[in-house]
């Protein structure tokens, strides 16, 4: 693993961090500041923006997060951004929101940018829920292969499988395998929290932005 974190301010990229009231916005911001990557937290969609990347963080209850994201028209903003061929990273519930549907609570629709369903882990002995803590992410994407290792998870619902297997770039095992990292063109999603995964996570974020 390349452990170097540059001290030079990176001005070429400008990352927008979506603040829709869910998730650890400041942790993502602190991580980008630490990486010397220009960033801005936005609490409402900005039509004309100069962002090179977007990050959609997230923690919490899917149905409520999905409701707010649609109510405040973040869905349109995100879709426009992706159509502009720019990269977006969804983290945890932020990643789950990119899928079609989650069974959490009474069930709710996501943004349907990736088809697939978020479901609760099946109950098994010795696998307490939530799945919480560091766990191994096995990458099958050449670009990220050298960052394979332990990342931080905290969730009870997961993406067991995606129809389009070619977009699965990382798998993690917790009682059974689930998708912990996917890449569909310029759309990235991680079930783990890179901003909470120590040095390795910081380098993952750096790679998402600079590569």
């Amino acid at each position: 693993m390349d452990k170097k974190i540059s001290n030079k301010l990176n001005k070429e990229n400008f990352v927008g961090i979506i603040d829709y009231g869910f998730g650890n916005i400041a942790s993502v911001k602190n991580a980008l500041n630490y990486l010397k990557i220009k960033n801005k937290v936005i609490s409402s969609p900005i039509k004309k923006n100069k962002f090179s990347h977007l990050i959609l963080p997230g923690d919490g209850f899917f149905p409520k997060a999905a409701q707010i994201i649609k109510k405040n028209k973040w869905d349109i903003f995100i879709k426009d951004f992706i159509n502009g061929k720019k990269k977006i990273l969804g983290i945890c519930v932020g990643m789950q929101l990119l899928l079609s549907f989650s069974t959490e609570g009474r069930g709710a629709k996501g943004l349907n940018l990736v088809s697939g369903k978020i479901e609760k882990f099946s109950k098994k002995k010795n696998f307490s829920l939530p799945h919480m803590g560091f766990n191994m992410v096995k990458f099958n994407d050449n670009k990220f292969k050298d960052l394979e290792g332990y990342y931080y998870f905290i969730h009870s619902f997961r993406l067991k499988k995606i129809k389009d297997k070619s977009i699965v770039t990382g798998l993690t095992r917790y009682s059974d395998d689930f998708v912990s990292f996917f890449k569909k063109d310029n759309l990235f999603g991680t079930q783990f929290h890179p901003e909470k995964s120590g040095q390795r996570g910081l380098i993952f974020l750096k790679k998402f932005i600079l590569d």
């Binding site: 630490y34 905290i154 901003e195 996570g201 910081l202």
Partner: peptide, 12 residues
């Protein structure tokens, strides 16, 4: 906490 978090990137 906010000072601490500028350099520490682990679960809190």
């Amino acid at each position: 906490i906010n000072e601490l978090r500028k350099t520490i990137f682990i679960p809190l």
